[in-house]
């Protein structure tokens, strides 16, 4: 099944037709969230992966006695959630919609078995995941430097 929204998603630029079809088979839902709505909760089962289409999502962490701190915001074109890739498949941060947000939601269990079944598809998908993770890590390192505080 080919999904036009999938083919247009920035995360999947250059993805081969046959792989798009495999990924299409993993689509669980088209999701929508209103501002303030929770998307992921730390400790919850990571059974989905969201490809954000529109809107802004805040990745947050809470600690007792302080307001939740936003670590990073994601927007349309970004991938939200990678805890589904590795055991124990539990979310490590909270995610909340800041504005009206839509996403293509993929089923994590189907994704994992598709990766195992077809190593070429797996490599293509994981390359994109890795790039997204590396970019996110680079950005986080810069944030940690607190460059504006000097």
């Amino acid at each position: 099944m080919r999904d036009a929204a999938l083919a247009d998603h920035a995360f999947l630029v250059g993805f081969e037709e046959e792989h798009l079809e495999k990924l299409g088979a993993c689509v669980a839902a088209q999701s929508m969230w209103r501002p303030g709505e929770s998307i992921l909760l730390r400790g919850g089962v990571a059974d989905v992966c969201h490809l954000l289409v529109e809107g802004t999502v805040a990745i947050e962490i809470r600690s007792p006695g302080t307001a939740p701190q936003i670590i990073q915001t994601l927007q349309g074109g970004d991938v939200l959630g990678w805890s589904w890739l590795f055991e124990p498949h539990l979310w490590t941060f909270d995610a909340r919609a800041v504005s009206d947000t839509s996403a293509i939601t993929l089923d994590a269990a189907l994704l994992r078995s598709a990766i195992e079944d077809d190593p070429v598809f797996g490599a293509q998908l994981l390359k994109r995941m890795t790039k997204a993770i590396v970019n996110r890590l680079k950005a986080t390192r810069l944030q940690v430097l607190d460059v504006y505080n000097h």
Binding site: P35, T56, A58, E60, T66, A67, P68, Q69, I70, I71, Q72, T73, Q75, R96, V98, S99, A139, L142, Q143, D146, V147, Y148
Partner: peptide
Amino acid sequence: DRADETWVGSVGV
């Protein structure tokens, strides 16, 4: 670079 939940803009570099 950092914000609490009251911020509706972007967080990140």
